[in-house]
């Protein structure tokens, strides 16, 4: 897209994102009301139902004595002020709880995404270039295997291998508190703790991107402009990089946007396996405690993360593809 059109494009995309976020809030609200029982009882779950004071607070929070539309309005207003409710179990505001855990999750999903996209595109490109050879077969089989393996099980197997038997890497938490490390030492400690969970989360998506990249590269390689490039004497390596790969990346970017939500969802499983102190772990703890306020909050925040990530991928796509005109 030409740069002069960028502000208008951005504005439209931001407005759309806001609309999606509002829809998610409404969706949350409907969920609470669709559940069997009165919303306060639902939200209190097992943990706080016995506490009349808490129940009263919940009823006030949702405005349960008011008509439904007013309730929606109260709820919307609350969420937009980042008031995601109060966790009786943890005796803390949900928003605060999630914000405390957010950096850990961002670190994990970010690292996993990098592993997945760089490894996946590299493997897919290699397979496409050597299509029909043993390298292609090996990559295809690996991708197929990771694509069929449950995330949490990969995590457990990696723990079994690298922590239990080889004792190379830590399998639990984000850092070792007994080390009392700071600065670089802490970073090194976190990095070591990050390897297994990030690889676990990354492998599945690596398989996805490898398959996608291979398929789209083979498709693009059949197109006329690639033949044009060869006909003008462009060396094979450059044909693949500048012509085939660049065009093949467009669907990969689109897919990365679509997959973002899945990645965040996967982090719940991985954080559970590795006791990684992020919002996934928080969600699991909330699940065990039937603390639905927190669960709803996690759903909302992760959705917002995905919407923001989609905004980024759309922008990237628009910058790469000159044909993008309107949203």
């Amino acid at each position: 897209m030409e740069l002069s059109r960028l502000p208008g494009f951005l504005l439209r995309r931001v407005l759309k994102s806001v609309a999606v976020i509002l829809a998610i809030v409404v969706c949350n609200f409907l969920l609470i009301h669709a559940a069997p029982g009165d919303p306060a009882t639902v939200m209190a779950g097992q943990s706080g139902a016995a506490d009349p004071q808490y129940m009263e607070q919940l009823r006030r929070q949702f405005g349960l004595d008011q008509p439904l539309t007013t309730q929606l309005w109260i709820y919307l207003k609350g969420v937009l002020q980042l008031d995601l409710g109060f966790s009786h179990r943890q005796q803390a505001g949900v928003a605060g709880l999630i914000m405390d855990r957010l950096p850990a999750t961002l670190l994990l999903t970010g690292a996993a995404f990098l592993i997945a996209i760089s490894g996946g595109v590299a493997m897919g490109a290699l397979a496409a270039r050597r299509v029909g050879t043993w390298a292609d077969s090996v990559i295809t089989v690996i991708a197929l295997a990771f694509y069929a393996t449950p995330l949490f099980w990969v995590g457990l197997m990696l723990v079994l291998l690298f922590s239990v038997y080889l004792e190379w890497l830590p399998s639990f938490g984000m850092s070792d508190p007994s080390l009392n490390a700071t600065g670089l030492a802490l970073a090194w400690d976190v990095a070591q703790h990050l390897v297994l969970p990030a690889v676990t989360l990354g492998l599945f998506y690596l398989a996805v991107y490898a398959r996608l990249t291979r398929a789209t590269m083979l498709e693009v390689a059949d197109q006329d402009f690639v033949k044009t490039a060869r006909a003008k004497g462009v060396p094979e390596g450059r044909v693949l990089r500048a012509h085939v790969l660049r065009n093949a990346l467009l669907p990969v970017i689109t897919f990365a946007g679509i997959q973002a939500g899945q990645l965040v969802g996967g982090s719940i499983l991985v954080e559970t396996v590795f006791a990684w102190p992020g919002i996934g772990r928080l969600a699991f703890e909330a699940l065990l405690a039937r603390d639905y306020q927190v669960l709803m909050g996690v759903f909302f925040i992760t959705s917002v993360m995905v919407v923001l990530f989609n905004l980024l991928t759309d922008l990237l796509y628009a910058l790469i593809d000159p044909r993008v005109e309107v949203a």
């Binding site: 969706c27 609470i32 669709a34 719940i268 969600a283 639905y292 669960l295 709803m296 919407v307």
Partner: peptide, 14 residues
Amino acid sequence: TIPSFVLAILLVAI
């Protein structure tokens, strides 16, 4: 767009 696994968890839990 919404993280489907999180939604699934929420639905089953509620």
